[in-house]
């Protein structure tokens, strides 16, 4: 996987994160799911390149179980 996919690149991480949360603030679960789907599609279109999109799909598969204590 190319480094560029996961190296920090956000211009203003805190501001973006706050905007993301506030976009969901008044939405119910169903609406939030729909909003996320639309956002993913818009972002994917911005990226365009299939190879890069596939790297992102791979990068999103992080293993959550091993990091937690059960």
């Amino acid at each position: 996987m190319s480094e560029s996919v996961t190296t920090p690149n956000l211009e203003a991480p805190d501001a973006f994160y706050a905007d993301l949360l506030s976009a969901h603030e008044k939405l119910g679960k169903e609406e939030s799911d729909a909003f996320n789907a639309r956002l993913i599609l818009l972002m994917a279109n911005r990226i365009g390149d299939l190879g890069e999109l596939r790297q992102l799909l791979e990068a999103a598969k992080v293993d959550r179980v091993s990091k937690q204590q059960y």
């Binding site: 799911d33 729909a34 789907a37 639309r38 993913i40 599609l41 818009l42 279109n45």
Partner: peptide
């Protein structure tokens, strides 16, 4: 279904979603 509906909802407003 969530993604399919998202594509169709976006297609009403934005051209980019229509090829999907």
């Amino acid at each position: 279904r969530i993604f399919r509906d998202a594509v169709l909802d976006l297609s009403e407003h934005y051209e980019f979603a229509r090829p999907l």
